[in-house]
Every structure is written in structure tokens, then in C-alpha cells.
Design a protein around this nucleic acid. Sequence first.
DNA 1: ATGGATACATAATAATCTTATGTATATTGC
DNA 2: GCAATATACATAAGATTATTATGTATCCAT
Lengths: 113, 113
Amino acid sequence: MIFSSELIKGTLKTIVLKQLESNKRMYGYEITQRVKELTKDRIQITEGALYPTLHALEADGLVTTETEFIGKRVRKYYSLSPKGKTKIEEKLSEMAEFMETMKFLLDINPTTA
Amino acid sequence: MIFSSELIKGTLKTIVLKQLESNKRMYGYEITQRVKELTKDRIQITEGALYPTLHALEADGLVTTETEFIGKRVRKYYSLSPKGKTKIEEKLSEMAEFMETMKFLLDINPTTA
DNA sequence: ATGGATACATAATAATCTTATGTATATTGC
DNA sequence: GCAATATACATAAGATTATTATGTATCCAT
């Protein structure tokens, strides 16, 4: 089962920042594959969503970039900036609280999952 | 703390349908107040988001409506249709699975919340 | 050498929300 | 009584964020 896109909306930045927190240094395509693998294909980040998001994170100073050549092919690595580290911590605690709130509001008990 | 709007995105229909499942018959304003109360002001549904959503649910045949007059003021009651009952069950199980997936992906443990 | 995977990027479109505005009635405090 | 707030509906302009489509180019396996 692939999650309906509307559910994933609003969580993409958090997912990307979390990956960068866990793996220090990643490139775009790698992030899509890692998330796909970790979620057993249930979350598939499209390129049209990912790249604008990465550019926005960079513009906000939350990530820094380094471009490398692998053979003749360009690869753009992203890393969390100090500002990005603070941000992901905020996002995670907000997400945790949000999930608790939703669980209560929607009456979702652990056995339902 | 009020949740950032992007988090709530994509969950509004589920919240509304769940309220109608729990309370059988509600009007729009009542839904906003109930949700605000249940979430201790952390989720505040705006009217600009609510009414278009309710109209969309009606257009999709997920809810039925009855208009009543309270004094001279109109009140529009919404109820779940059979199709809506099926839908909310689907949405809730999807949401439950999504939350489990996010918990794993973001490494959120219960103690963080 | 052809197809699929890797790897970047952007544009047109769609969905869904915020903010602002509009209308109108009911209630509460002074 | 009247002003402010709450109740109750609705829509429109604009912002955000995603999908889908398209473009370019390299690498690898058959």
C-alpha cells in the first residue's frame, strides 16, 4: 500500500532533514532510494517534489551543499547546517506531539496499526 | 503550541469525517469548536478551510445535509452517509499505518512525545 | 545499441490551505 | 440601548506544496 499523497504533504521537509541528520551527507537521488527502502515502498518521494524542497532548504540556510563529479556525472551532496540541526529537533518534537494529538482525536489505538 | 499548518494539511477531511462518525450529526461551526476543545487549542480549523471541505465531502456523497433554522439563523447539519462510513474506516486505518511508518522513519519513540 | 537505472533540474497543473472579506443573527457587558 | 463578541454561513484572492510531464545527460548490462 502506497500512502495517499495528501497524507505525506507537509512532512517532506521533516523526512529530508531527518535523513540528513542520520546520514550526515547525502545526495538527492540517494534520499529518495533510502526512504523508499526504509518504508518498504510505501513512501516514494518524487523528483519534482524533492529538488524544489532541497533548494528551499538551502535557501533557508538549513543545509549546505558540495558538488562532486562521479566520473563525468554531477552529484550534489547535502549536509545539515547548525541551523538545520536545530530545525530538525524542533520538527521532530512537534511531529511527536502532533501524532499524539491525532491519535487521541482520531481514537487510534496501537492495536489498530 | 499551535501546530504549523503544513502538518495539519491532508488530515482535515479525516478529522471532519471522524467527528461526524463520533457525533452522528454536527454543523460546521460546531466541528471547529469541538476540535479546538478536544485538542486544547492546538488544532484550529479555519472557516476558509472547513466550508470548502464540507462542500467537497457532500459533492463526493460522503455526507448528507439538513438545513434548520435556529430562530432566524440558518444552521446546516452534516451526517455521514454509508459511503462516508466506509471512507472514514479506510482513512483511519491508513492514518494508523502512516503514523507507524513515520514513527519508524523519524525514529520517534513514545517517550519523546 | 538499446533499455533501464542513475542524477540533476524546471514548468505546467492540481490540490489544499491561509487570509481577507462579506452577510447576518444572537448574546453579553456596560 | 448599543457596542463588542460570538455564532454561522459562504466565497475569493493568494500562497504553498505537491503531481505529472518534460528535458538533459551519464552509466551499466544484455
